[in-house]
Amino acid sequence: MLVQEIPKGYNPNVYFSSSINLSKKPLAVFEKPATPTPLIAGAESDAQLDTPAELTSLQRGKRNTGVVNYNISQLSQQSTTTYVQQTSQATLTLLEERKSSKRFQELDRENYAQDKTFEIPKNGFTKNRTGVTHNTKRILASRKNLGNYIDELDDQTIGLVFNLESYEDKNTTNKNAIKLCSICGNNASMKCVRCGVRFCCLKCNNLHNDTKCTSYSG
């Protein structure tokens, strides 16, 4: 669980408590709660509470349960990410999902064949740079790829950075989908019974069976 200080500039009397289940309720704001709850966070404002009895019980509760402070900007960001997650309903089977992302990577690759011998030119093109300070030496020699950097991230940043895409709603899927022949690109109304790929005419069907059909044995 993340323990975070409330940054300067926020109203110290407005608190969020970890007892709220974020996945069920979007947001809940307490402004100096009238009824004392055992999980009010924040050490600075303890003195503002009314009775010393409440104060001690609060402090005890705080020590035992490890109360967490969230700050407001984080919470609002989390609420947007939960909004996204709620809309992401599984409209596809796992297999389709995996196929699609594999296909995406295949198309999104710039070089068709990997060149293992690609060495970053050490001398550069105009100047030889190996770094002036300790930091830059480290950066220029690091050879880390994106995966390494992602491994170093905490869950919250991952939730922010990798939750930016929209997902298809259940109701709208396939409603407006365009169906094209996989051979010639014309509008196609028929599907291959074996593999489900579309074709538009007999000629394309034959071509499809000869070349592209993955489960054709005739």
């Binding site: 060149d115 690609f118 970053i120 093109f125 740079r129 220029l140 020699a141």
Partner: peptide, 26 residues
Amino acid sequence: FVKRPFEQGQLTSWELERSIWDYALG
């Protein structure tokens, strides 16, 4: 064979980018 300093839009490889920047600034 084309190699870019960016991976998925993130600038990861300063080893490459410094050469390109050096050239561009020049």
